[in-house]
């Protein structure tokens, strides 16, 4: 059996578990909130070290992860184990990638520092407003016992999730984002993990090269969104420069805590065609249109109704 086929056959197991999870009644809100908060806290606070696999469409990647500290001192280091050499340091709300390819070493600064297994927001309890939570069966991932949790969206504006939380620490060992039919869009799974204090000190914290900040605050508020899908609030509003763009672009992000939808606003230099885009598996949806004198692009890892709702609610101030 080819490695890819082996991987696919291991993916088939949780699909079976999903159906048993589906049979269970949703947890009462208070209990659901408690479970989600435990899972969120474990990923943010526990030190752990391991290797996880990331799968999206035809792409599969293996990454080594070390997570140290908690709160403002939290720092994690991701190292790709296949393809181009890439290291990502995540701390204090941003991340710095170092990519080594044939042409040398490139650094990229990013505005966020979230990654598997830290998938749930700090205030995870609030997710129970938009997702029904069900407890599934016990399973085994990376040699550890874990309990499946299913988050089913209560409306059409977000994807569903499955998480397998380690039975004592609640650290997610496996996670899946699924579409409305329960088909996986993105999957993560630890293949090995050590939870608790790391025996290896790992690389010493490096001096991160100082690069020009990618973004600055103070949005112009040229555009207003009349109505947002339930649960979405604006979590980011920055001006930034993007490659191949003559002008600064405003980048806003709307989120319900799990789903993220970006809004890019820039001056329309000529009439803008209304164009819809979608990724092969439908996970990402996009709409570009003209609003007054602006070109606006709405892009999210969200179902089309959510992107459509925001894109059609835009007005020029």
């Amino acid at each position: 059996m080819s490695p890819a086929a082996c991987w696919l056959s291991t993916l088939a197991i949780p699909l079976v578990l999903m159906s048993s999870a589906l049979a269970a009644d949703p947890l009462p809100n208070q209990e659901a909130a408690l479970w989600l908060q435990r899972v969120a806290d474990s990923a943010r606070r526990l030190p752990y070290e391991g290797v996880f696999v990331f799968n999206h469409g035809d792409v599969m990647q293996t990454l080594h992860i070390v997570n140290r500290g908690s709160g403002p001192l939290k720092e994690s280091l991701l190292t790709s184990l296949d393809g181009s050499r890439r290291e990502v340091i995540c701390r204090q709300g941003e991340s710095l990638s170092m990519v080594a390819d044939g042409t040398g070493v490139r650094t990229e600064r990013r505005l966020s520092s979230r990654h598997f297994p830290d998938l749930l927001p700090a205030n995870a309890a609030a997710l129970t407003n938009w997702y029904a939570v069900r407890l599934g069966e016990m399973d085994r991932v990376a040699g550890l016992d874990c309990r499946w949790l299913q988050l089913t969206p209560k409306d059409v504006y977000r994807w569903g999730y499955f998480l397998c939380a380690e039975h004592s620490s609640h650290l997610p060992l496996k996670a899946m984002m699924v579409n409305e039919s329960g088909k996986p869009l993105v999957q993560y799974a630890f293949t090995e993990v050590r939870i608790g204090s790391s025996t290896r000190t790992g690389n010493p914290p490096r001096n991160t090269p100082t690069t020009e900040s990618v973004a600055k605050n103070a949005p112009s508020e040229a555009i207003a969104v009349r109505q947002l899908p339930p649960g979405y609030t604006r979590v980011v509003a920055v001006k930034r420069r993007l490659p191949n763009r003559p002008n600064e672009v405003e980048h806003w992000v709307y989120s319900d805590g799990l789903t993220h939808i970006s809004l890019f606003i820039e001056p329309a230099t000529r009439p803008v065609e209304t164009v819809r885009g979608e990724s092969t598996k439908g996970m990402l949806n996009l709409l570009t249109r003209q609003v007054g004198n602006w070109q606006v692009t709405v892009l999210g890892d969200a179902p089309w109704p959510a992107v459509e709702a925001i894109a059609t609610s835009l007005v020029e101030r």
């Binding site: 990331f54 792409v59 990454l63 991701l78 790709s80 993007l242 490659p243 970006s262 885009g277 892009l299």
Partner: peptide, 18 residues
């Protein structure tokens, strides 16, 4: 846009096909 949006998605490196 895809690249900038990935600041906020949890996919680590993947470039989606659109």
């Amino acid at each position: 846009y895809l690249d900038a949006h990935q600041d906020f998605t949890q996919g680590v490196v993947a470039q989606p096909e659109m």
